[in-house]
Design a protein around this nucleic acid. Structure first.
Lengths: 401, 401
DNA sequence: CTGAAAGCGCTAACAC
DNA sequence: GTGTTAGCGCTTTCAG
């Protein structure tokens, strides 16, 4: 049974909203006179000059209380909604907007709480300065028109792809300061990729976490429990997203920094995984697929490290579906420190990163760069968190893996 | 064991980025000359007038190909990044930005895939017109500064609270067209709430779904299966969010439209629920709490209707935790039509709504209003979808409920 | 097809 | 404490 099966859509009339009367157009008069009162109108009504009227609103200079009240009263009379931001912006050269560019589809990024929590922190620090966030979803590879044309005072770029990131190059060309979250531009000598050149002098800041030491600590803990044979479910390596074992031919220098660093931490702990599955995105279903792939093998590894909690939770689901007990039959760990109530009764062993703080720092970085102040790189610490999904392997076999 | 325990933060130097040389300031010269090339510079370099140079970039008028090439070459020479959007915006009176205002915390809204999918659709339709989305998180009740001051050509307001919504009033005062998603302004006569007056003439559009008939169809189906005793886990009733049985004293006319309408649909199907639990937000954990509350009672209802899928999935978790089989012991249904892979092997019985399409329509509405064209109300259909979480009650007792 | 002129709405340096 | 003045960078008539 279907609730309703047609698209209800009332006919559209072509009538315009009532146009306000405009003064007779003179030569060179732009056709876009809004008809709304301006600061000049208020000034006339209050019997003061425009500059004084401006002061009444901005408070950016000395003004007699009586004068200010007179101006505000006149404004109220005229239903003047306050200074037009467009005029302010042109005059001050500031838009009051910071672009947030996600190197991925909105849909995919936003199904991941990691992006959201970061965005929340970003909104906090920028909001405190009355700076707005312009959402710029960006398909992998191409440069969205908004990056090229929208007004913004700075941009926060999440998950850029290294030296050749065309988005960052476009921003640099426009002179827009860039905050790189979980990204870098490569060594200065590498910055002249085909897509563009980011001059070393371009105002840039970096905010990241110490993920390398995070996975290292995690893996060391698992080794101490007796695990010797590891599987890894990895985040995407780069914009060319795929599911399966990674292409051995890929340039290990390129691709997403977070993925590279978290893998490096595993190596730091002295572990060479028996199997690595790359996923196209940090989503439960991809973790589930990867989990099935790894756990269905004969004699699978005793511990699986997923590079994100969403992936790890997918692996847990896969294990459950295969009738494996977690952590008795297989230990599963994640990364991020998300709250995943639906995994109950299990609680993921993970490496918690300060997501909101990362966003907040990115916001502070943007604010600093806008003010012309350099912002030194920030690397936030992460913390190992024991959950219920890891334990010693059933038979801590000392046979070589 | 802890990966690292201090906040790594390198010392901040106070050096400025190298300031570009500015021409000696003359009287009245604003201090904010960017030093970057302008269209005038390009025009000089190309040996044409500014108006011609403008045409070379906008293509909004006749221009000789040779002239255009000369201008573009000069622009490339000067590393001119294209017309400054701030100038364009003041001149055209358009910011190219639509505000997206969520009547809730960013964090909360964005943990809910419903908001995200809508936002994705919104980005689609606005992006096709090169219009950017300004993200405006809004605490319940107060008017964010960005609503009052940010430049935008229109605003999409999600989940407004009825006639007295201060955010909508503020937008109306500024003359900014408003698209209401899942909201209304009450009857015209009610629009003069204490918080503000939204004149009937103010450009406004509405986009919603046929949720009333959705829950009606759902409940009728359950009744046909033999269910007679229902519990309801409700979305928040209004900005005053709480968990528990609803305040009987609340004005049934106020509060979130979606909640009211979905409840109305249940009544339409001839059902008076034995128990209603209101939740503070559409989140799994609240559904879980509510589920425990309902299912722990003696002789609980045989069917539980949650007004969102996230809430419903929480109820499923609660049932599992209480050792109840779904749907044998209790039927559970949701609303939205989300993909919840982690609920496997269960698939929610639900009412699917076209979320992305809702966002797309909101975007189209905004575009229409910006162009001064009225946009008639849109009510999108919903569709009942049978999952595995509903079935006939174990003993379809015909004793009166 | 190109150039001249006018001004969108505002702020801020400076003179009074 | 207030007014004068000069644009911010751009688009768009309209004349040639």
């Amino acid at each position: 049974m279907v609730a309703s099966s047609v698209w209800v859509r009332w006919p559209r009339r072509q009538t315009q909203f009532p146009a306000r009367p405009t003064r007779p157009p003179t030569r060179g008069d732009p056709p876009v006179s809004t008809g709304r009162p301006t600061l000049a109108d208020v000034a006339v009504a209050a019997g003061v000059s425009v500059s004084t009227a401006s002061l009444a609103f901005s408070g950016a200079g000395p003004i007699a209380a009586a004068t200010r009240d007179r101006v505000l009263a006149a404004a109220a009379d005229l239903a003047y909604p306050g200074p037009n931001p467009l005029g302010q912006q042109l005059r001050t050269g500031r838009s009051g907007i910071v672009g947030a560019i996600f190197g991925d589809r909105l849909r995919r990024s936003f199904r991941d709480p990691v992006s959201i929590q970061m965005l929340d922190g970003l909104a906090q620090s920028l909001g405190a300065h009355d700076i707005g966030i312009l959402l710029i979803p960006s398909e992998a590879g191409d440069v969205p028109p908004l990056v090229a044309h929208a007004a913004m005072d700075a941009a926060v770029v999440v998950l850029c792809n290294g030296p050749d990131d065309a988005v960052v190059a476009a921003l640099a060309r426009r002179g827009i300061p860039v905050v790189l979250v979980e990204g870098d531009l490569g060594a200065p000598t590498e910055r002249d990729g085909p897509a563009g050149r980011v001059p070393a002098s371009h105002p840039t800041a970096r905010v990241g976490i110490d993920d390398r030491r995070g996975t290292e600590a995690l893996v060391r803990t698992l080794r101490a429990l007796g695990h010797e044979r590891f599987g890894v479910v990895a985040l995407p390596f780069g914009h060319d997203r795929r599911l399966g074992e990674p292409d051995p031919a890929r340039d290990p220098r390129s691709g997403y920094l977070a993925t590279r660093r978290r893998l490096a931490g595993i190596a730091d702990a002295g572990v060479v995984p028996e199997i690595v599955i790359e996923t196209p995105a940090s989503l439960v279903e991809h973790g589930r697929s990867a989990g099935h792939e790894i756990l269905s093998r004969p004699d699978p590894p005793t511990a699986i490290i997923a590079l994100s909690d969403l992936l790890a939770s997918g692996v847990v689901l896969a294990a459950r579906e295969l009738g494996l007990r977690v952590p008795e039959d297989v230990s599963i760990a994640g990364f991020d420190g998300l709250d995943l109530p639906w995994l109950a009764p299990d609680v993921l062993t993970t490496v918690r990163q300060p997501l909101a703080e990362k966003g907040r720092q990115a916001g502070e970085a943007a604010i600093a760069l806008i003010a012309g102040v350099p912002f030194p790189p920030v690397i936030l610490p992460v913390q190992y968190e024991q959950g219920t999904t890891t334990a010693a392997p059933r038979a801590a076999s000392h046979s070589n893996g």
